[in-house]
Structures are given as structure tokens and as C-alpha cells.
């Protein structure tokens, strides 16, 4: 459908709006038109924008969940293995049960005092989940890439101040430099800029 050479020439087309509702409406129109590879940019989270862009959920919550579980298990192992392992009746099933035994006697309590292990397990769950969230977020944002084609557009600086942007990327199957520009014009944006690749 689209002209192949135009696709290579630019990253996409960027439309600028001055209020969040206009951006959501524009994204809604674009989605109905059939665009998939597009992204909205705004200074603050805009309600309904994600649905309007037709974005699928990320897998981050699942990753964070398993990050948390890893933390729980780490916390449990860290304390159990350094304080005499599981109770002796587990020796038959777990060969390495007492390999790392330091047998810490704390106030005469059982070596395997799971009650006391719970708070550190909880803390490590939160820590690992938070790490997964932060580093996962950096990863899916393309870190360590520090530059983005959009930064070439001077107007885009206001995306973190008071302007709302819709970018239709040239990777989209329906993308066609002229036709997409016509379509964006119908949405009555403040400006339309071509983003160099």
C-alpha cells in the first residue's frame, strides 16, 4: 500500500496537540483508521490514552511477580541454609540440607525458626520486585540507547511541559508519507513534523 522509499526516509510523523483530550481523540481516530505502530507522548499520564492507542498490556506485571517470588525464595534460602537447614527429618529428601550449616543459636530458639524468617523474606520480595520493575522498565524503554529520533524535532521539547504528541511511525503497514500527513491534518493538530530517522 504505502510507498516503500518514503518508509526509509523518516522515523514517522509527529502531530502536536495542546490538550490531553485532543490527543486521546486523535489516537482513537488513528486506531480506528487502522494504525498500529504509533505512540502518544504527554507531560503526565492521560486517562484512556493507552486504550485509545490500542496498546496491549506489557508483560511487566508478570515479570515483577516472578521477581518477587525469586526474592521470597532467596530470603528463605539465605536464612534457612545459614542456620542449620530445614529440620533434620528433611535430610533424607534434601541431600544438601545441612551443607551450609552455621547452626546459629539465637535465644535458644529452634535453628529452623521460620516465623522469624518471614520479615526478611518479605523485605527481599519487595526489593526484588522493585528491582525487576525499575530495571525492566529501563530495558523495555530501550536502555542503554540514550538518544531517540524524536529528539530531533524542536517542538518535541514541550512534551514534558504542556504539549501532547501523537507519533505515527513509518514502520506501520499503512504508513504513507503524504496520505498519513493528510490524515493527521484532519485531526487539526497545532503542528505536524516529520521525524528524521
Amino acid at each position: 500500500m504505502g510507498a516503500a522509499p518514503a518508509k526509509m526516509a523518516s522515523f514517522g510523523l509527529l502531530a502536536e496537540f495542546d490538550n490531553p483530550q485532543a490527543l486521546v481523540d486523535a489516537a482513537d481516530r488513528a486506531r480506528r483508521e487502522g494504525f498500529v505502530k504509533m505512540e502518544g507522548y504527554s507531560p503526565f499520564p492521560v486517562e484512556g490514552l493507552r486504550e485509545a492507542l490500542g496498546q496491549k498490556r506489557t508483560l511487566m506485571p508478570v515479570a515483577i511477580f516472578f521477581g518477587g517470588i525469586t526474592g521470597t525464595i532467596t530470603g528463605f534460602m539465605l536464612q534457612t541454609l545459614t542456620s542449620g537447614g530445614l529440620p533434620a527429618e528433611w535430610d533424607a529428601w534434601i541431600p544438601f540440607n545441612q551443607w551450609f550449616s552455621y547452626r546459629l543459636n539465637i535465644a535458644g530458639r529452634p535453628f529452623f525458626s521460620w516465623q522469624a524468617f518471614v520479615p526478611p523474606m518479605f523485605e527481599l520480595t519487595i526489593l526484588f520486585a522493585a528491582f525487576t520493575a525499575v530495571f525492566g522498565m529501563l530495558a523495555i524503554n530501550g536502555y542503554p540507547r540514550l538518544n531517540h529520533p524524536l529528539f530531533e524535532v524542536p517542538e518535541f521539547g514541550r512534551a514534558s511541559v504542556d504539549r501532547f504528541f501523537l507519533c505515527i511511525e513509518s514502520e506501520d503497514k499503512l504508513y504513507d508519507n503524504e496520505k498519513t500527513r493528510e490524515f493527521l491534518k484532519n485531526l487539526k493538530p497545532l503542528t505536524i513534523s516529520e521525524v528524521p530517522a
Binding site: 500500500m1 504505502g2 486521546v24 480506528r32 487502522g34 484512556g48 485509545a52 499503512l174
Partner: peptide, 12 residues
């Protein structure tokens, strides 16, 4: 956004 909108590829 209404969820019942059909996404149709009718561009161009």
C-alpha cells in the same frame, strides 16, 4: 474509549 469499536484497516 468504547471497547466495542471494530478496528478496520481501511486506510488509503
Amino acid at each position: 474509549v468504547s471497547d466495542d469499536v471494530e478496528v478496520a484497516g481501511s486506510h488509503g
